[in-house]
Every structure is written in structure tokens, then in C-alpha cells.
Simulated assay, not measured.
Amino acid sequence: MKRLLIAAGGGGDAIATAMVHAALHGPDEPALVLTYAWERLVVDPVPGPRRPSDFTGTLPAGPTLRLVTPESAPRPPAGSLLPRLAAGLRPTLGLLDPYDGAVGLAHQIAEAAAYCGATRVDVVDVGGDILADGTEPTLRSPLGDALVLAACARAALPTAVHVAGPGLDSEVPEAALLPLLGDPLRALTHADTLPVQAVFDWHPSEAGALLVAAARGIRGVCGTRDAPRPVTLGAASANVYRLTLERALEINPLARALAGSTSLAEAERASEQICGFSEIARERARAARLGRETGGSAVGRAGRSGQPSPAERFARWERGTARRGIAYVTTRRIAEELALDPVELAELRDHLRTASPLRHTPPLWRLVTAEG
């Protein structure tokens, strides 16, 4: 017997789902976490979600459901951190394939329930865009979450929806979410982060990192890479809230519209009608733009001769960032804004940890300047 959970928003939500599961049920409780292989272009340069045929080494758990293992690997040119997550997280990971819409996902959820011997489903979303109404100007990625809600309704298993860290994904503001959420189910603590703490040494999830930071008691203004404004970690940031599936569907019009969808293209069209955009189309445009800017390849160390060291570049960047009132930043923001390759990033991390230990507040970095 395993508990069945669904990470509603992708690879980063799988980490938070493992943490929420451990907090609610204990780290040793067997569980299967279903998750999309739908990752940022910095990880996967191919727009949109991956499907089982995009991987080698997955294990069948039903006619359409596949499990991701540490031995699994994405087929180039696709990329994915799920195999590495499968090695770093205690729950088993199963791959959600949305290409047959909510109807196909419902079949996969039913297969997963049979595989686990589970009679109910727990959905986990970091940030709360699973409760978007489609009008939010900061909304960026509603489709995966909405498909999960629609599929759970179609699978007809008792389902609870958990929102962890309202507002931490910078999509639906915390102030808009809190009236919808009611009283918190639980506040995550430092101890709850221990099962996932090592993952953030290499995984770029920002919402997940902010949730872990909040659970560890970090409070203040945090700068992330893909957000119109900084996130403030406050009193509600470490909380987990529980809603019924029916209530989540009542709030989310896109999920209701996807109830009978049989393809991802159909789901995209529904997102365009209700939210005004398709996030996959945005990914395609961004991938094309990045390809033009880089000539199809990332800038490596060979192109940096004569430039200041990563530590020198960071010091200059840190002063300007701190002046904007930002107290903490994610590793991903440092890496992308300084255009650091993996070797340079590792060099900078080692430097910051040894030269100024106060900067390292895992999984974030505290900005420290001469001005205070």
C-alpha cells in the first residue's frame, strides 16, 4: 500500500509534495508522487511537457503509467531533472502525460491508484495558481494545475487539494489567496525540510526553495528569477492549506473547461480562451528567442577570458540588487542574472560559503553589503 499524491505544477512541485507528505504522514510512509516532466527551459530546452517516450529506463505501472527511476534518462535534445529527483526523494515518482488531455490523465490516475492500492488522492500545489481564475495579470502557468483538477474529478476518487506557501510562485498574490483558503492545515517547520534539503544544492526550483526557506524561519524580501516583483516571506508562507476538490473546481474556470479534453492542443485552446494565453506557445517563443541570442548553445567558460571572476561579478551585482530592498535571492537568480555556467556557479557557491558563511541561508543566499 502506498499513498497517492499528485504534484500539480511540475518538477519543483514534486519536491514540495514530498515535503508535505512527510510533514503530514511521516517521512517513512510509502508514497507515489505523480508529476509532470514539464521543466523550465534552463533544464529542458524543448518547449512543453515530456511524455514517457521521451525517456529511457522508465518502469511500467499500468497500461499508460510509467515510473521514473534514477536509471531513467531523457532522450536528447530533451532534458529532465526527474531521474535525479527520483534518486534524491523518498517517494516513488510517476510520470503524468497530458497529451491526451484530462481524459488521458484520469486513466493514469486510476492506474496509479490501482498500483498503490490507494482509495484517495492528495494534490499539492506550491504557490496557489491551482486556484487561479484566469484574470490574474501575473499568471504564467495555469494549464498543468487545471488539467490535474479536471482529471481528478473525472477519475472520481476522493481528492483533497493542498496549497503550500500561498503566493510563493508569484502567480496569484497571497492577498488574493488567503480569503479562499480558510485556516491553515499545518505550518511547515525546519524539521519538515530535512527529507528534501539536499535537493536544493542542485535543483533550480524557486517556489520550492522559498517554501523550504519559509519553513526554516527565514522572513524578508526575496528575489527570484522569473517574477515581476520580489516575494516577501511572511507569517503565511510556511503554511499548508487543504480544500476539497469541489471547492477548487468552483474557483478555477479553466479546470472546469478541461473536463472532457482529449488532447493537449485542445487544453491549450481552452487556456487561450479563458486566460488569454497558452504557456506552451510562450515557451516556444522564448526557446526560439534564446536560440537566436545564443546561436543554439550556451555561453561557456571559453567565452569569458578577460572577464572578472564570478566572485567579483557577484559583488558588483549584489550591491545593485540589495539597493532595491532585496534581502535574499535564489541560486537560480544568481546563476541566470550573472550568466554562470555550472562550473562557475559551483566556484561561486564554494567562495561564498567559505568567505562569508552568513550569506548562506539554505536554500537561499542572504545579500550582505558594506552598507549593511
Rank of each mutant, 00 (worst) to 15 (best):
R186T: 12
A187M: 13
L188Y: 07
L188R: 05
L188K: 02
T189K: 14
T189W: 14
T189A: 15
H190Y: 09
H190G: 10
A191R: 14
D192F: 09
T193N: 09
T193V: 05
P195V: 11
P195S: 09
V196G: 02
V196R: 01
Q197V: 14
A198I: 05
V199R: 01
V199L: 08
F200D: 00
F200M: 10
D201P: 02
W202Y: 09
H203W: 14
H203N: 15
P204M: 11
P204V: 11
S205W: 01
S205H: 08
E206H: 05
E206A: 04
E206Q: 11
G208D: 11
G208Q: 02
G208L: 02
L210R: 04
L210P: 00
L211P: 01
V212D: 00
A213I: 06
A214K: 06
A215N: 10
R216P: 13
R216Y: 10
I218N: 02
R219A: 06
R219D: 05
R219E: 08
R219P: 14
G220D: 09
V221G: 07
V221P: 07
C222S: 15
G223V: 06
R225W: 12
R225C: 04
R225I: 04
A227K: 02
P228A: 06
P230E: 08
V231K: 00
V231T: 15
V231Q: 02
A235C: 05
A235G: 07
A235Y: 11
A236Y: 08
A236G: 10
S237Q: 05
A238T: 11
A238Y: 05
Y241N: 14
R242G: 01
R242M: 03
L243P: 00
L243K: 00
L243D: 02
T244M: 02
T244P: 01
T244N: 04
T244H: 04
L245D: 09
L245S: 05
L245Y: 03
E246S: 13
R247I: 08
L249K: 01
E250F: 08
E250R: 11
E250D: 10
I251Y: 06
N252V: 08
N252G: 06
N252E: 10
P253E: 13
P253C: 07
P253F: 04
L254Q: 07
L254I: 07
A255C: 15
A255V: 13
R256E: 09
R256H: 05
A257L: 08
L258T: 07
L258K: 00
A259L: 08
G260K: 08
S261C: 15
S263R: 03
L264A: 02
A265Y: 09
E266Q: 14
E266M: 05
A267P: 05
E268Y: 11
E268W: 07
E268C: 15
R269I: 11
A270N: 02
S271R: 02
E272M: 14
Q273F: 14
Q273L: 15
I274R: 03
C275P: 03
C275F: 03
C275G: 03
F277G: 01
E279F: 05
E279R: 03
E279D: 11
I280L: 15
I280C: 07
I280Y: 03
R282M: 08
E283C: 03
E283Q: 15
R286S: 11
R286F: 12
A287H: 01
A287K: 02
A288V: 06
A288R: 13
R289F: 10
R289V: 07
L290P: 00
L290T: 08
L290K: 08
